[in-house]
C-alpha cells in the first residue's frame, strides 16, 4: 500500500439546486481494490463521471499521480490512465466484437491519426485484441456484430474493453449487473486477476455484498453525495451507522 495513484480533493458537482456529489476527498492507492457502496441515488455513478470526466466538476480537484486532471477532456484522461467501464452497456453496436476491442488497443497505441495504412495490417494490434478476447472467452464470437450478443456477453465485452485499455485506474460500474449466476464468476475472476498487478488501483461500484467481501480491500460509503464511511471491509460493514442506514437493505439481498 504505497503512494496515492488517484485522489479527489473536495470534489463536488451540483445540478441546479441539487448537490449530487458533495465535497468528497478520498485517496486511492496502488495495489488496492476499493468498493464504492451506497443506496441508489447516493452519487456513486456521478462520482465516477467526475473522475473520468463525462461530467465537469463544479468544485474541487481530481489528481492522477499527483497531477491535476480536473479540466482535461475525457479522451485525455483516458490516455493518461483513467479507464472506465460503464453501468449501462455502452459499446459500438454495429461493429464486430473483435473490432470493438481492436479499436481500444488502437487508441492505446496512438494509431488513430494514421490515414493511409490498412487497419488490419497492424498485426500487433490485432494479436493483442485476440489475446484479450481469449481471456474473456469471447473468442468464438469475435466476428459477430455486438448488437447480436446476449446481455451477459455484452457485459463481458464491456469489461474486456476496459482491460484492453490497460489503464492505471480501473473503474468498474456494477460489472455483473444483470448477468446470470454462471456468467458472473468469469467477470469476477478477471477483476480478481487484475489485482495481481500492484501498480494499479481498482474502483468498483457494486451492490452484491458477497462480491465485495471476496474482492474488496477497502470500502467507501457514499450517502447523499457525501463520504459517509471509509475503511477495511469488516470494519465498515460492522459499523452501526452503515449497518442500519445503508447496508440493511443490501444485506437482505444476499
Amino acid at each position: 500500500m504505497t503512494a496515492s495513484l488517484l485522489q479527489t480533493r473536495d470534489l463536488a458537482v451540483r445540478f441546479g439546486g441539487h448537490v449530487a456529489v458533495d465535497h468528497v476527498t478520498c485517496d486511492f492507492r496502488a495495489g488496492e481494490l476499493t468498493a464504492i457502496v451506497g443506496p441508489n441515488g447516493a452519487g456513486k455513478t456521478t462520482y465516477f463521471n467526475l473522475i473520468s470526466g463525462q461530467v465537469p466538476a463544479s468544485a474541487g480537484k481530481v489528481l492522477l499521480k499527483g497531477r491535476e486532471v480536473t479540466r482535461l477532456p475525457v479522451a485525455e484522461r483516458t490516455r493518461r490512465g483513467i479507464g472506465r467501464a460503464f453501468q449501462l452497456t455502452n459499446l459500438f453496436p454495429g461493429l464486430s466484437v473483435f473490432e470493438n476491442v481492436r479499436l481500444v488497443i488502437q487508441a492505446r497505441c496512438h494509431r488513430g491519426f494514421d490515414l493511409f495504412s490498412m487497419a488490419m495490417s497492424h498485426a500487433e494490434i490485432s494479436e493483442a485484441a485476440q489475446e484479450i478476447l481469449a481471456r474473456v472467452r469471447l473468442w468464438d464470437l469475435s466476428g459477430q456484430p455486438v448488437s447480436e450478443l446476449s446481455h451477459g456477453n455484452q457485459r463481458k465485452l464491456e469489461v474486456a474493453m476496459l482491460i484492453a485499455l490497460d489503464p492505471k485506474v480501473y473503474m468498474f460500474d456494477e460489472p455483473t449487473a444483470g448477468m446470470s449466476v454462471d456468467e458472473a464468476p468469469v467477470v469476477l475472476d478477471l477483476i480478481a486477476g487484475l489485482k495481481d498487478d500492484v501498480t494499479r488501483t481498482i474502483l468498483l461500484v457494486e451492490h452484491k455484498m458477497d462480491v465485495i467481501r471476496t474482492l474488496a480491500d477497502r470500502i467507501i460509503v457514499l450517502h447523499n453525495g457525501t463520504l459517509a464511511a471509509d475503511g477495511p471491509p469488516a470494519e465498515v460493514m460492522a459499523s452501526d451507522v452503515v449497518q442500519e442506514a445503508y447496508m440493511g437493505k443490501a444485506l437482505e439481498d444476499v
Binding site: 479522451a75 483516458t78 472506465r84 455502452n90 459500438f92 488502437q106 494514421d114 485499455l165
Partner: peptide, 22 residues
C-alpha cells in the same frame, strides 16, 4: 479502411464511448 477510418466508424456508432476509450 485505415486506423483513422475505423475511428470514424466508432464515432458514428457511439461517439460517447469513442471519447471514453481515448
Amino acid at each position: 479502411n485505415s486506423p483513422f477510418g475505423r475511428v470514424l466508424q466508432a464515432i458514428r456508432e457511439n461517439d460517447f464511448r469513442a471519447e471514453a476509450i481515448g
